[in-house]
Lab assay of single mutants.
Amino acid sequence: MGFKLLSKLLVYLTASIMAIASPLAFSVDSSGEYPTVSEIPVGEVRLYQIADGVWSHIATQSFDGAVYPSNGLIVRDGDELLLIDTAWGAKNTAALLAEIEKQIGLPVTRAVSTHFHDDRVGGVDVLRAAGVATYASPSTRRLAEVEGNEIPTHSLEGLSSSGDAVRFGPVELFYPGAAHSTDNLIVYVPSASVLYGGCAIYELSRTSAGNVADADLAEWPTSIERIQQHYPEAQFVIPGHGLPGGLDLLKHTTNVVKAHTNRSVVE
């Protein structure tokens, strides 16, 4: 069995187990497998329904001669939608809004960016022009300005110390501490036991640490421990890039980060 097929099978099995364990909360999309990078042309966006009122959005972007996937989250909030992270750029984010209108038909009224990198804030200006209120932590807003990236308009308070959590509509926002970046936030959907790890969490097929220019490698494993301790009931975990899975993604990420750190020390 090929690795790609095995990865998709694991996603399907995880979703099936969740649907059985929580039949009222989960209505997993039966329309197909989780979209992969090879299936999404740059400039297009796919939506994948995880649970009743919960979707991931998947886009792709060219970077350094390669094409990478990027995940975000959409959560229903009454007759409105909360968006977590842009679709990595203005063109993708405009396509995301169009796809949401086509498939869901509810307005996106608020959006949260989970850290300051372009795959999370690139497209904020498109959201703002569409009347979406954009939010991020003060740290993310400051770092985005320093980096020359787009800056969300509103500040999220109460997320300055490791372990801080605040309720934001249908989700809980959690600051686990520094990891992929010093400002990275985690998003949890309690009604569906869905954990969105953003770039602080890796997919299972990833074996290298990737972009760690703004990471705190020493603190990252401790931050992941905080996530595990705060959300032990999480059933569906979405990484910032690639295929979702279960809580095993947290341990896998820790292993990859520690291996990278150990290699760096040896070198």
Rank of each mutant, 00 (worst) to 15 (best):
G210P: 06
L24E: 13
S27E: 10
D119K: 00
V166Q: 10
P41D: 14
G177C: 05
A259K: 13
L5C: 15
V212K: 05
E145L: 14
L156D: 02
H115M: 02
G158F: 06
G122I: 04
F168N: 01
L243G: 09
V108S: 01
Y188L: 00
L81D: 00
Q103L: 14
I17C: 13
I227G: 02
L156Q: 03
R128Y: 10
T36I: 15
G53M: 08
I151C: 04
A218V: 13
H260E: 14
E33H: 09
A59D: 05
E157W: 12
E147T: 14
S30D: 12
A15T: 11
Y68C: 06
S31H: 08
E101P: 08
S223G: 02
L106G: 05
Y202T: 09
A144K: 03
V265G: 13
S31G: 11
S223T: 11
E233F: 11
G240W: 04
K251I: 11
G198Y: 05
S208M: 12
G72P: 02
V45H: 03
G32E: 10
T222G: 12
G169Q: 04
V194R: 00
L24V: 14
E203P: 06
A259G: 13
T222N: 13
A66S: 13
L97T: 04
V11C: 15
L127C: 00
T207Q: 14
G148I: 02
Y175V: 01
A87V: 03
I50E: 03
S31R: 10
T254S: 12
E219N: 09
M1L: 06
V132G: 01
L217C: 01
I17V: 11
L250D: 00
A94T: 14
S31P: 10
L24T: 15
V166E: 07
V121E: 00
K91N: 14
M18H: 13
I186R: 01
S205F: 09
A209C: 04
T153F: 10
A200V: 08
H260P: 10
I238D: 00
H241N: 03
D214Q: 08
R141P: 05
T114H: 02
G198K: 02
R142T: 13
G177P: 01
E150V: 04
S223Q: 02
G65R: 09
A111V: 06
G197C: 05
R167S: 11
A192Y: 07
D29K: 10
Y12N: 11
V37Q: 15
I238W: 01
T109C: 06
D52P: 12
G197R: 01
K251G: 13
Y231R: 00
E99I: 12
P190Q: 08
R167I: 12
S155R: 10
K102Y: 11
L9D: 13
A136F: 02
V256T: 06
L96Q: 02
A136N: 03
S30C: 08
L106T: 08
L173A: 03
I74Y: 05
G105D: 10
A51I: 07
A215T: 07
L185N: 04
P176W: 00
S223E: 00
V266M: 14
T222L: 13
I84C: 03
A215W: 03
A129D: 13
V67A: 15
V189L: 05
R120P: 01
S264T: 12
M1A: 02
S193M: 13
I58W: 07
A136R: 03
G158C: 05
T93Q: 00
V42Y: 08
P190T: 08
G245S: 06
I40Y: 06
L249A: 00
I238H: 00
D64C: 05
H230T: 12
S137H: 06
E80W: 05
Y175Q: 00
G105H: 15
H180P: 03
M18Y: 15
N211Q: 11
V146T: 14
M1Y: 03
L143M: 10
D216W: 04
T254A: 11
E267F: 09
G2L: 13
V28W: 08
